[in-house]
Design a protein around this nucleic acid. Structure first.
Length: 456
DNA sequence: AACGCCACTCGTGGTACCGG
DNA sequence: CCGGTACCACGAGTGGCGTT
């Protein structure tokens, strides 16, 4: 009975859609039972049938929704699995991150020249700037105009007390323009003197810098090797105590932070609360709550203690800072001494380099002189047979295939020469022999001539 | 005057401090 | 894991100084 009411229930995707439609139809057709009441019993059987089919349909519907639910469950499960794997991945990443962070703590007792150079560059710049401020000879000299301005400023200000900076500048500018060359001369001279001194200082610094760079370059290799060694050691150690928590190394002498009023209170309450078997977290929560509700009057004693703590902390901190500064100062001095030593070493190196450079230069110069000393009139050696062939062939080849590069052309010539028959070679050999004869005659004549000039 | 550089300030976010 | 506080590092913004 019910089977014919159901068109095709077993397949899923399409049916589920149909099921929905059917459901809607069902919802839309409720008047039948209502009308049943009003109408006679003769349609009762019909109603029963209808209800049965309805029931059947609902059953199917239920099955389908159950199936749908199952599918949903499946999807959810998959999602959960995905999340879990993602969590695992995150955990992995965390571990990696921790490793990386650990790597950050790699503190070799030296720095490689690369990093060093960038570091020292920044440091040097800073130091240089500070130096400029500290000692006047490294300061860029003021121009003659500025020097003159310094002299004239107060005077102009006296004459024009109302004038502000801009106006005073304008007056000075006008005055300077009207000044004769002679009046400007002393300032110009002063500027030149200062400039000269400044340039010397700069040149010296530049030279020292160069020398230091040389030294650095030289040390780079050695440093790199040692650094590599240290790094490898570090990696090994890092892997060994990877499980151990790695906290920053702290200065044990540094005074500890003062305990706040709340912490004083919490510490006092802790013992009692722990006796009540409260957990750590509970204790924290309870003390926090209690502290919030505590009146100012009751808080006062704890605050007093905290205040005292802070005072002693500040005192200790001051003392600590002082000793630290002293340490830093002595260390700085040491470093400066070392730098001096390095500088000397570097300068020596530079001298050595300059010496060798000079030697090379000299050698080159003497070679050049030798060449220059050679009489340009002295007959030149004649071209060989291959040279003559090459000249001809090169011309031909470049005409035949323009754009071919020289190296290829030369290679081709060489090949062709090797493939050349004896007869063909003989042509070039003959030409070369003739040239050689002519050359010999020229040399004879030249020798006679030079002998005559030198004897006279 | 115009420009670059430097020191300083301020706000913000992060962290250490204590206890088990 | 919790509380309040102080400190630190860092970036952005700003005023002032030095140089041309």
């Amino acid at each position: 009975m019910a089977t014919n009411a159901d068109p095709a229930p077993t397949k899923k995707p399409r049916n589920s859609r149909k099921a929905l439609k059917q459901k809607n139809e069902l919802v839309e057709t409720p008047p039948s039972p209502v009308s049943v009441k009003g109408k006679s019993a003769k349609s009762f059987e019909q109603d029963l049938m209808e209800m049965q089919t309805m029931l059947e349909k609902m059953k199917i519907e239920k099955d389908k929704t159950e199936e749908l639910l199952k599918e949903k469950d499946e999807i959810l499960r998959k999602k959960e699995e995905e999340l879990e794997t993602r969590d695992a991945e995150q955990e992995k990443l965390k571990v990696e991150l921790k490793k990386l962070q650990k790597m950050k703590e790699f503190k070799p007792n030296m720095t490689f020249a690369c990093g060093q150079s960038s570091l020292t560059q920044a440091e040097q710049e800073k130091a240089n700037k500070k130096k400029k401020k500290d000692c006047p000879e490294t300061k860029r000299p003021s121009s003659s105009y500025v020097l003159w301005c310094k002299d004239q400023w107060t005077e102009v200000k006296k004459e024009n007390p109302e004038a502000d900076f801009k106006e005073t500048s304008n007056i000075l500018g006008a005055k300077w323009k009207s000044l004769s060359a002679e009046d400007k001369k002393p300032y110009e001279e002063r500027y030149q003197v200062e400039k000269e001194a400044y340039l010397q200082v700069i040149a010296k610094e530049k030279r020292e810098k160069e020398a230091m760079k040389l030294l650095e370059d030289d040390q780079k290799q050695r440093t790199a090797m040692e650094l590599l060694d240290q790094y490898l050691n570090f990696v090994q150690e890092a892997e060994q105590d990877n499980k151990k928590k790695n906290k920053k190394e702290k200065d044990p002498l540094k005074p500890k932070h003062p305990v706040s009023a709340f912490l004083v209170y919490a510490n006092e309450r802790r013992a009692a609360l722990r006796e009540e078997n409260k957990s750590v977290v509970e204790v924290a929560k309870i003390t926090g709550e209690e502290w919030k509700n505590l009146s100012d009057k009751k808080k006062a004693p704890y605050e007093k203690v905290a205040k005292k703590n802070k005072e002693t902390y500040l005192q200790a901190m001051e003392e600590y800072k002082r000793t630290k500064e002293e340490e830093a100062l002595s260390q700085k001095k040491e470093e400066e001494e070392l730098l001096k030593l390095h500088k000397q070493e570097a300068l020596q190196m530079l001298k050595k380099k300059e010496k060798t450079d000079n030697l090379i230069k000299k050698e080159k110069a003497t070679k050049k002189k030798k060449n220059e000393n050679v009489d340009p009139n002295k007959p030149k050696k004649p071209a060989s047979s291959y040279f003559l062939f090459s000249k001809d062939e090169r011309k031909k080849l470049t005409e035949e295939r323009p754009g071919t590069n020289n190296a290829t052309v030369t290679a081709l010539i060489s090949l062709k020469w090797k493939e050349l028959s004896e007869e063909e070679k003989q042509v070039y050999n003959g030409k070369a022999a003739k040239l050689m004869e002519a050359y010999k005659k020229e040399v004879e004549a030249y020798n006679k001539k030079s002998a005559a000039t030198t004897s006279s």
